[in-house]
Write a protein that binds this DNA or RNA. Structure first.
Length: 271
DNA sequence: CTGAGCTCCTGGGAGC
DNA sequence: TGCTCCCAGGAGCTCA
């Protein structure tokens, strides 16, 4: 389930195959994703790629004549494969690189997004991206900045951390992990988190996301990187999915509650 | 305006 | 064995 680290691992995996190469065409086998795949993809030819960027959980492939905006949804993968690799179930779209490999988009649950922005239309100006909050790995994301945003919200802090208008890239798994590392209860109102605690949150968000990127992301059910290898950060998880198991710090059994999504926490360490 | 809850989809697992 | 039900997850949408 791709959160920021999984998307970044994917971006880094496909970028070398794309940058300074040419996309010869796209193959769209199944356009009925949650949002229909832009019909233009079927007609595009010979697009020199200039950059492969990430904003939040979106990947942006810019070319000489437009940009592709991609979101992996909850079950999407982009795999680099050789052109003769047999198509399997849920292989919805191919990005065919001239004289090179194919980047194959597979998305079992079809919550992904594949949109084309022709000409100079910048995906970053799309309403969905304009409203996105700060990038947690950038220097401008500080405890003060996070506190400023959390102080306006009365929702539980765990839900606030998953709100991509507060910050981007933190999904359900990392929200549980970050709150555990910070000693903050997922139930606490966002506006009751102090500025000092926000500083701790920012530090832990950075550390956990960066460590996960370095380990290839987290594979719970079905994520894998561009080469198909599973993410190894799953072995580093301390509370997520560990209901009833002893807290790694104090030994108290980890508890589970539904806070928009499954949440895991230590009732003793997290206040 | 804010926050809670529902929805899209598929497949794996639990329970009967 | 085979069925039904529930759950996972991101994010847009509706409704109170």
């Amino acid at each position: 389930m791709p959160e920021l680290p999984e998307v970044e691992v994917t971006r880094r995996g496909i970028a070398p195959a794309l940058i300074d190469h040419t996309i010869s065409h796209f193959v769209v086998r199944f356009p009925r994703l949650r949002t229909p795949v832009s019909p233009e993809f079927a007609c595009l030819r010979d697009l020199p790629v200039t950059s492969v960027d990430r904003r939040g959980k979106y990947i942006i492939i810019r070319t000489g004549s437009g940009a592709a905006l991609i979101h992996l949804g909850m079950s999407g993968h982009l795999h680099l494969v050789s052109p003769d690799t047999p198509v399997i179930k849920h292989d919805h779209i191919d990005i065919v690189i001239a004289g090179g490999p194919v980047i194959r988009f597979n998305d079992q649950r079809r919550f992904g997004l594949f949109e084309w922005f022709p000409g100079n239309r910048d995906p970053l100006e799309d309403p969905r991206l304009v409203k996105l909050g700060p990038e947690p790995l950038e220097d401008s994301f500080t405890g003060q900045a996070l506190h400023e945003r959390l102080s306006r919200s009365r929702t539980p802090v765990k839900k606030a951390l998953m709100d991509n208008e507060v910050l981007v890239g933190v999904g359900n798994i990392y929200a549980s992990e970050v709150l555990f590392a910070s000693g903050i209860s997922p139930f606490r109102k966002a506006c009751a988190v102090t500025e000092q605690e926000c500083g701790v949150l920012v530090k832990n968000i950075r550390e956990i996301l960066e460590k996960s990127i370095a380990r290839g992301g987290t594979t719970i059910h079905d994520f894998s990187g561009s080469d198909g290898s599973p993410g190894e950060y799953v072995n580093e998880l301390r509370v997520y999915g560990k209901k009833g198991q002893p807290c790694p710090v104090c030994g108290t059994p980890i508890e589970h509650a539904v806070l928009s999504r499954s949440s895991y926490y230590c009732p003793r360490c997290q206040k």
